[in-house]
Amino acid sequence: MIHGSVVALVTPMTASGAIDYAALARLVEYHVSSGTHGIVAVGTTGESPTLDMDEHVGVIAEVVRRVDGRLPVIGGTGANSTSEAIELTRAAADVGVDACLLVTPYYNKPTQEGLYRHFLAIAEAAPIPNILYNVPGRTACDLVTETTLRLALVPNIIGLKDATGSLERATELLSRCPADFWLFSGEDAVAAELMLRGYRGVISVTANVAPKAMAEMCEAALAGRREEALALDAPLQALHRDLFVESNPIPVKWALAELGLIEDGIRLPLTPLSAAHHATLHAALRQASLL
């Protein structure tokens, strides 16, 4: 059962940009031991746009192997090409993921009918649990509620990662989606409130650097313990905000490197965090008692 704090895992890299599989193994163990409830491998936080097909599937396969059934693993397999998304989703299913996360097609701006047909084609071609991912701020494409409801009728489309950050949208989704259609927050800053209202978890950037705190906050929120959940979330609010001072995953990879968990490697066109933001991230890490 996928729930709680699901980390949108970074893909660790060396200074040259090569994938650092030793660091990937350490990150998996870090999350298992810290209480993280699930892992998304090679989502957009995992720099999926700059990994080639072999690397993409290879990282997912390595996460599945290292997790070894201890946590659910979700493969990030979305693309703005339907055929590419089908190929990635089939490959992720073959290496043993529990579900796939499918971002809305970016840049080409399909119609709502195009979105429906895109996700339907993937679901029919790869009969594995599919979780849709709506993040209009990054994709220039919004999966509206009516289209989500149509797709919720497809048997293996099981949920939605909602990164609109809108409480109004969340209220609409909660009131209209089937009870067995899982809703996950894609925005750390509102995740506690959304889980208190009925979302089943968060697919989280903050959990990369604060896995134990995020897991504890999610457990309290899912149990309906409002005051405790909000108290646990308060020290994380600066991280929720400041891990986006530059485009994700630039700040979170820098923070992980500062914590000694990975090298500060990232691929172009992304670049290392600007020096002007170092003090801001240090302050956020200290507020969360990570430094």
Rank of each mutant, 00 (worst) to 15 (best):
H3E: 06
G4M: 09
G4P: 03
I19N: 02
Y21W: 11
R26P: 09
R26N: 07
S34Y: 15
T36M: 03
H37L: 15
G46N: 14
E47K: 00
S48H: 03
L51E: 02
D54L: 12
V57C: 06
V64W: 00
I74H: 01
G76E: 00
T77W: 03
N80V: 04
E84P: 09
A91F: 04
D94V: 13
L101E: 02
V103H: 13
P105W: 01
K109E: 12
T111G: 07
T111K: 06
L115Q: 09
Y116P: 07
R117W: 15
A123D: 00
E124Q: 11
A126H: 01
N134F: 05
N134M: 10
C141K: 02
D142H: 13
E146D: 11
V154D: 07
N156T: 06
I158W: 14
E168H: 14
L173A: 01
G186C: 12
A191V: 06
L196Y: 07
G198A: 00
N208Q: 12
A213R: 13
A215Y: 15
A215W: 09
M217P: 05
L222I: 10
L222A: 04
G224F: 05
R225A: 12
E228D: 11
A234P: 04
P235V: 10
R241L: 04
D242S: 05
V245S: 14
N248Y: 10
L259I: 04
L259A: 03
G265A: 13
A276T: 04
H278I: 01
H278R: 08
L281Q: 13
H282V: 14
A284V: 04
L290T: 04
